[in-house]
Design a protein around this nucleic acid. Structure first.
Lengths: 384, 384
DNA sequence: GTGAAAGCGCTAACAT
DNA sequence: ATGTTAGCGCTTTCAC
């Protein structure tokens, strides 16, 4: 259970040389606030022998570098605040002793850990994977860790994850979407941890929000298809009962279409987005609404299935049927025909979230209710 | 910076009723080992007013439930070890005070945190996303958190991530693959934290390993194509210079083919796997080796590109050219024709890893060098 | 079964 | 710029 015992080994190797220099490592600790009785010289206390412990601590580094522990701590957090001499002595000690700071202890003392809790529906979803990856990369440079949680589109689960997240006294909490349980909202709103909601804009937010308006995505798709001369539209959606954002895109699509006097048939599938679902939805659509000439999909997985099914049914895309997806996934540009789609910037969302967190930690006032619209891009390729 | 201040508010609301019961919350703490001087009654010390702190602590729960903090701690970790009366009093107190345990403090005291560090090349990769998601779900049930790191296929980066991971005194460290820098290996081998290497088998392992043999995957693909009567094989690989496991699959493919007296042309692309890369690789292959009649791809993204390009080039699949991929990604079964592929079980890997970790924490001896072969399945669909 | 005591390794207010 | 000091909130012996 003890960890970093390797360091102890290193220490043992070095031991003789250290003794030569008259240094005593692993010596008595501050016995701060100790009782006054039996503190007579000679009654050495068995320092740090009690439990499984880290071998090399900041104290050891301090002794080796002949400075105080707090100077080491300061050096670790703000090297520029320490004199060059002390700095290099500490650096040398750290290197020599192979010291690895204990962030858990640091987190406890500082009442805020260098962890950022990111809660997404699932990292299996390429959109969130992208954001999580971008955030991890950006946060890492600031020596912040990512603690990951998956809600699987369940608000109860999210609530639980938030509760646990708070147990870690994170530097920030990142949530997906603006829709959370009452309890989640209450827990969070009364806490000083910065909360960042990602991948959705356009509703009441807890603190900062970074993302885009999903209804605008739907509207853009509708306007695009109509612009292409399509008048019989359908929206194919997977898992829209759970995926609020897919639903918002659908709503935006329908609203923009009816504004233009065009009706929309919404065809749904309860399963998660997949090419298979898309294929099924397309065949269902063409059967129920054979006049359909323009289709928008809740995302590119579904659109890919549409493309495949059209090929099988010998439906010409885009001549007979125009199709547009959402996501610009890895295969979208390579499809037959290349898939028109709307690209959100998942990585930008992650980067901006990381930036906000870092700025907040640097003391910049939380400027609550910050909203960053990362927007989206309609890629007009050959499927429409 | 302080967190969970919401609890303080809850407390304030409840305050009057508590006073009624004569309870004093947020009272003096144990001033354990305090100096003897000026400890006269009347000189109250300003308890817990110094820094930004958590509002409700285990001590508050203990006072409310009229038990000692250690009993609360025990109840939280092993409820069955506490008497029914004390247990329900504590449960009530926790509920009433809205207590959220501080895992950072717990981790420090226990010298091991309830965190598991998972280090993968990237969660953008569907394979690892699957495993990470499965692990997170399984670990969550044991109240373990996932700390995520991305190496981006860089051993130096991995080394750094491992170092940071150790700073968190994690309950376990999960690494991808068996290939690590010398320093990484040294840091890890001398530490008592269980290390689990995933997604690769067949080399020297640090501790436990869960995954499968990638060369066997390649061999299975080769035998399959040869069985289908193909004699002019090609292996299309993306990013094989970085992705060791893709390279192993390729090697296994080539070896099995030459064992059967069939030669293989390996065609590579340096970019990450994508349908676009696959399309390019196919056109290159058919140009350089027009007699090719069987193709294996480093994964299904590449195979999808092959399928698309064959369609564009009017190459009949599987009649003229059989294709098999790797991964069984979400679109693979829905392709035209449905893509033959080899399915690894990314989620099984995650589940087994979680199981090992939980067992280890339950005290089961690490049984080092544990190896779990999660195997793979060849799905013979219509592309071959 | 329960409680008192003693830290875990670090940070940060304060003093110098 | 550096050191002194007093905890952060919890776990874990060890008595009882």
């Amino acid at each position: 259970m003890g960890f970093m015992d390797n360091l102890k080994q290193v220490l043992e190797i070095e031991d003789c040389s250290l003794q030569h220099k008259g240094l005593i490592l692993l010596s008595q600790r501050y016995m701060g606030g100790d009782m006054s009785e039996e503190k007579k010289p000679g009654s050495e206390r068995p320092a740090r022998q009690r439990r499984k412990m880290q071998s090399i601590t900041m104290m050891d580094v301090a002794e080796y570098a002949k400075v105080s522990p707090s100077t080491v701590s300061l050096y670790l957090r703000r090297p520029e605040a320490v004199s060059a001499g002390a700095g290099s002595a500490i650096a040398h000690a750290i290197d020599k002793l192979n010291y690895v700071p204990n962030l858990v202890a640091g987190g406890l003392a500082a009442a805020s850990s260098r962890a950022v809790s990111i809660i997404v529906p699932s990292v299996r979803n390429a959109f969130f994977a992208e954001t999580v990856a971008a955030m991890q990369t950006a946060l890492r440079k600031e020596r912040l860790q990512v603690i990951l949680g998956h809600t699987e589109y369940d608000e109860r689960e999210e609530e639980d994850l938030v509760r646990t997240a708070l147990s870690w006294a994170p530097a920030a909490i990142v949530l997906t979407g603006l829709s959370h349980s009452e309890t989640t909202r209450r827990m969070l709103s009364k806490v000083k941890v910065p909360v960042i909601e990602i991948w959705e804009l356009g509703g009441p937010q807890i603190d900062a929000a970074i993302g885009f308006h999903h209804d605008q995505v739907g509207a853009a798709a509708a306007r695009h298809l109509i612009q292409q001369g399509r008048r019989h539209l359908a929206y194919l959606g997977a898992r829209m009962h759970e995926d609020r954002r897919a639903r918002l895109r659908c709503d935006g699509f329908v609203a923009a279409a009816s504004e233009a006097g065009v009706e929309v048939n919404v065809v749904q599938h309860p399963a998660p987005s997949s090419a298979e679902a898309g294929a099924m939805l397309l065949s269902e659509t063409m059967q129920d609404f054979p006049q359909t000439d323009g289709i928008a999909c809740s995302n590119d997985h579904v659109a890919l299935g549409v493309l495949f099914e059209c090929e099988r049914l010998k439906i010409a895309v885009p001549d007979r049927l125009a199709t547009i997806g959402f996501g610009d996934l890895s295969f979208s540009a390579a499809c037959n025909p290349p898939l028109s789609t709307i690209r959100p910037s998942g990585d930008l969302i992650g980067k901006e979230a990381a930036r906000l967190i870092v700025e907040h930690m640097a003391g910049k006032e939380p400027d609550s209710q910050t909203t960053i619209d990362t927007r989206f891009t309609l890629l007009h390729r050959r499927s429409s």
